[in-house]
């Protein structure tokens, strides 16, 4: 780690970051070009910048509605799965129960299965329950993705808390559940928060269930809504680039604010410490 960075290193770094960010830069530049220029020229900068694409993107499709839908669904999914998963992760890592390996194995298997394998039965179930085109109709299938993910990450955070804390709580007369609620859970709060961010992003980005279950435009989420901007005959690139910029901003803010935590969550358990 003592290697020092030279000039060549920074040039490489700038090129790397530029390549990674290039699609965003180009989409941003396109979104402020007038319609005509998008189809006719490959100039980087437009001489007469305009916000007409943004106005059009918000007018032709209920983009803000999509964002609200995504937000509500992702938030509900996150709350439910964090509560249920923190119970399980706590029990598996800290309580004297049997079959721990089996339970974690089941969780791991559940995080690996392909969503297409449960899509049609869940579609039938949601249809029969009258939950098509509703928030709950997406939250239920999203639990299939978020719950195993949350248990898997949370357990790495719970296991790091020293066991001595529980012993002293027990001596002070706390019940096992009080120990969990008042001591361990608050101590694991940073880990819980990290897990919540990752679960939220996973639910925000989901496409297959959202495409199949909420088919009414008013109930679509961001990923599906964006993919429906193109009509059969024309592709309104101006609208699409503007909409892309609008929906990417919240993610960029989230990543800038919480990058350290996200990296901690992504790499948890993948390396031995």
């Amino acid at each position: 780690m003592a290697k020092r960075a030279g000039v060549g290193f920074y040039i490489f770094l700038i090129i790397f970051v530029f390549l990674v960010m290039f699609p965003f830069i180009w989409v941003l530049l396109t979104s402020i070009k007038p319609q005509g220029e998008i189809f006719s020229s490959f100039q980087w900068f437009s001489s007469n910048m305009t916000l007409e694409n943004y106005a059009s993107a918000l007018e032709t499709r209920p983009l803000l509605m999509y964002m609200l839908n995504s937000f509500v669904v992702a938030t509900l999914t996150t709350i439910i799965s964090i509560i249920v998963a923190s119970f399980t992760a706590y029990a598996v890592t800290r309580l004297p129960i049997r079959f721990k390996g089996l339970i974690l194995g089941l969780v791991l298997a559940a995080s690996m299965f392909p969503q297409i394998a449960v899509l049609s039965p869940i579609f039938n179930f949601v249809t029969d329950a009258g939950l098509r085109n509703s928030y709950l109709g997406l939250v239920i299938p999203y639990i299939t993705i978020s719950l195993p993910l949350a248990i898997w990450i949370l357990s790495t955070f719970f296991i790091k808390i020293p066991l001595a804390l529980e012993e002293s709580a027990k001596l002070d007369g706390a019940t096992p559940f009080q120990t969990f609620r008042k001591i361990i859970f608050p101590l694991a709060a940073p880990g819980v928060f990290t897990t919540a961010i990752l679960v939220f992003i996973a639910a925000w980005n989901e496409y297959l269930f959202a495409l199949t279950i909420n088919t009414d435009d008013r109930w679509r989420t961001i990923p599906v809504g964006i993919s429906f901007y193109q009509s059969q005959y024309t592709i309104p690139w101006g609208d699409i680039t503007a909409a892309t910029v609008i929906v990417t901003i919240p993610i960029v803010v989230l990543v800038l604010l919480f990058q350290r935590r996200i990296v901690a969550g992504l790499t948890s358990g993948s390396v031995k410490e």
Binding site: L13, I222, I226, S227, I240, T244, Q259
Partner: peptide, 26 residues
């Protein structure tokens, strides 16, 4: 290695991962 702007590079690298695949595909 140690370099200036680690946080910025990390954020730049995380954005493609964090945006919805469908949006990236568009």
């Amino acid at each position: 290695r140690v370099f200036i702007g680690r946080g910025l590079v990390r954020a730049a690298v995380l954005v493609p991962w964090a945006i919805p695949t469908a949006v990236a595909a568009m």
